[in-house]
Design a protein around this nucleic acid. Sequence first.
DNA 1: CATTATATCTAACAATCGTTAGAATGTCAA
DNA 2: TTGACATTCTAACGATTGTTAGATATAATG
Lengths: 191, 191
Amino acid sequence: MNTKDRILETALSMFSEHGYDPVSIRDICGAVGIKESTVYYHFKNKQDILDSLFIRFEEHVDSLLKVLHSPDAWNHSQSPSFGWIDTYFFDQYLLDPFCNRMMRLMLIEQLHNKEIQQKYSRWLFEEPYRIEMSVFETLSQSEQTGKGFYAYITMLVFKYLLNGKLTARKKNAFCEEAHSYIASSFGFWEG
Amino acid sequence: MNTKDRILETALSMFSEHGYDPVSIRDICGAVGIKESTVYYHFKNKQDILDSLFIRFEEHVDSLLKVLHSPDAWNHSQSPSFGWIDTYFFDQYLLDPFCNRMMRLMLIEQLHNKEIQQKYSRWLFEEPYRIEMSVFETLSQSEQTGKGFYAYITMLVFKYLLNGKLTARKKNAFCEEAHSYIASSFGFWEG
DNA sequence: CATTATATCTAACAATCGTTAGAATGTCAA
DNA sequence: TTGACATTCTAACGATTGTTAGATATAATG
C-alpha cells in the first residue's frame, strides 16, 4: 500500500476510536512510520485527511446503493429477502470494517460538526430506513412490521457496532440477536 | 449559583457538545467569567471536573431508580402504565436537560474511555431495558412486545435525543413518534 | 552522467494546552 | 482594627498542537 493510503487507513483507525481532534498528526505519523511533514506532501492539511475519508466512504456507499437499486439485485435467483439484507446490508455495510469505522467517526464528530451531522443522519438513519422499508414493501409486509424491524436493527447497531472497536464478539452478538429477532418475529430465516 | 456549580454546569454544557478533550479549561473559564487558576481552587484538575459530573449524575439517577422501585411508585392511583413511563422515564430521565447532557457526554467519551464505556452501557442500554421490561411484565405483555418497545424507544433516543443539542423540536419529534408507536401498537395511551 | 520530478526528511514557528506559584482581594470573627 | 481564612487574580512553566521552509534522498528521463 502506498503512503497516502496508509495515512488514510491509519488516520481512520485512530479517528474512529478517539475522534478527530484528539488524534494528532504526530500520532498518525508515529503509527505509519513517517515524519509529520510527509503528510503535508500528500494532503493540504489535517482537515483534508478527513475530507478524503468521507469522499472515499460516499463513493463506496454510492456504488453499494447502485447495486441495491439495480434491477439485477431484485430479480435475482433469490428474491429480496432477509438473506439479502444479511448479505448486502449487514455484511457489506454495517459490519464492513471500513464502513463501521466511518460510522463511528460520524457518531463522534456529528456532535459538534453540522456538516458531519447531516452525513450522520443520512447514513445511519435515513438510508437504512429507506433500504429496509423497501425490502419489507417487496415482501408485502405491513409498514408497522417494517418499522419495528428497522428500530430493532438500529438499536442493535448502537448497542454492538458503535461502541468502541468492532470485535468478533460484538459482530457475533449483533448477528445472533438480529437473526433471533427475525426468527421469532417472522418465523423464518432464509439464507 | 456558586462558582463551583457554575463551572460544573458550563463544563457539562460544553463537554456534551464537543467532548471532553476539545474543551479547554480556558474555554470553560471564558464562559463562566473567571480565570483559569480559579478552577484549580475548586477542582484538583480537569479530570476532577468530569469525575464530579459523573458523581452528581449517578446520585441523581440512583435516587430516581429508588423511586421507581419503591412500592409507592407501583401502588399509586395509576398503576404502572405508559403514562408512568412518560412521566418518569421520559420527562425525568431521557428528556431531562442534565441527564440528556450526561448521556451525550457518555456517548462521545465511551469511544475511547473504557471506564465511561461501562457507564454508557449501563445507563443507555441496561437500565432502560430493565425498567421497560419490568413495566411490560406488570402490564402482562409478552416479552417480545416489551423488546419491540425497548428497541423502538432506543432507536428514537439515538435519532432525536443524542444528536447535537437537545432542542424543543427534537423533544417534540421524540414524544410524538414514541406516542404514535404506542398508540398504533397497543391502541391506547393513558396519561 | 546530468537533470528533473517525486517523495521524505530535519528543524523550527506561533499558538494553545493543563497546570502551578505566589500575590491580591474579599469576608468575617476576635 | 487586626488577623485568619476563603476566594480570585496575575503571570508564567513545559509540553504538545498544526503547519511550514528548506535540505536531502530516491527514482525516472534525457
